[in-house]
Amino acid sequence: MAHSNCNACAFYEDHAANSDSKLQNAGLCRANPPISQPAAETRGFWPVVSANDWCGKFSGAVAAE
C-alpha cells in the first residue's frame, strides 16, 4: 500500500493534549480498546502514535452510506 501509515488509517484520531493544543504529528490509535492502568482510580489510555507510524492492522477509511 502506498499510504498505509497511521494518519491514513480509519482508526487514527488526531490527539489533543490536556492544554487543548494539538500535539505535532501525533494521534491516538483506536484499533484496540484502551489499555487499562494498574490502579482502579486511574483511567485507561489509547496508544499515542506518530502520524507516520504504521502497523499490520491498517484499515483505510470507509465512506458512510
Rank of each mutant, 00 (worst) to 15 (best):
K57R: 14
V62T: 09
Q37W: 03
S21G: 11
A63Y: 03
L23H: 08
F58D: 01
N32K: 12
R30D: 07
C55V: 12
C29M: 09
A31L: 09
K57W: 07
L28M: 13
G44R: 07
S19H: 12
D53Y: 01
P34D: 06
E41G: 08
C29Q: 05
V62E: 10
L23C: 05
W54C: 12
Y12L: 00
L23T: 06
W46E: 06
A40E: 11
P33H: 10
F58A: 02
A10L: 00
D14Y: 14
D53E: 12
L28F: 03
A17H: 14
C55S: 12
N18S: 12
P34H: 01
P34L: 01
A26Y: 00
L23Q: 10
A40R: 07
R43N: 10
W46H: 08
N18I: 08
R43A: 09
A10Q: 04
D14S: 14
A39V: 10
L23V: 04
E13H: 06
K22F: 11
Y12M: 00
S19N: 15
W54L: 14
D20Q: 14
N18V: 08
V48E: 10
L28S: 10
N25Q: 08
F58C: 00
D20K: 12
T42F: 10
I35S: 04
G56N: 14
L28Q: 08
Q37H: 13
D53L: 04
P38Y: 02
N52Y: 11
S50M: 05
A61R: 13
R43V: 04
C55N: 07
E41W: 02
A51G: 11
S36T: 12
S21M: 12
A63N: 01
N32D: 13
F11I: 00
D14N: 15
D14W: 06
V48Y: 04
Q24D: 11
R30V: 01
T42M: 11
F11P: 00
S36Y: 07
C55Q: 09
A51R: 04
N18L: 11
A31E: 07
D20E: 15
A51V: 05
C55T: 12
S36W: 04
C55Y: 04
F45M: 01
P38F: 03
P47C: 03
D53I: 01
P38H: 02
P33I: 06
F58H: 08
S19R: 13
F58P: 02
E13C: 02
A16K: 15
P47N: 02
N32A: 14
F45N: 06
S50I: 02
S50Q: 13
N18T: 11
Y12V: 02
G44N: 07
Q37D: 08
S50W: 03
V49Q: 03
K22G: 14
F58Y: 04
H15F: 14
A39F: 06
N52D: 15
A26P: 00
Y12I: 03
P34R: 05
K57V: 13
C29R: 08
Y12C: 01
C55E: 04
F58L: 05
S21C: 09
H15M: 11
R30Q: 07
G44C: 09
Y12Q: 02
P38I: 02
K22R: 14
C29G: 09
C55M: 11
G27A: 07
G56K: 13
D20V: 12
A39P: 03
P47K: 00
Q37N: 13
A16T: 15
R30H: 09
I35G: 01
H15W: 14
A61W: 13
N18W: 10
R43T: 09
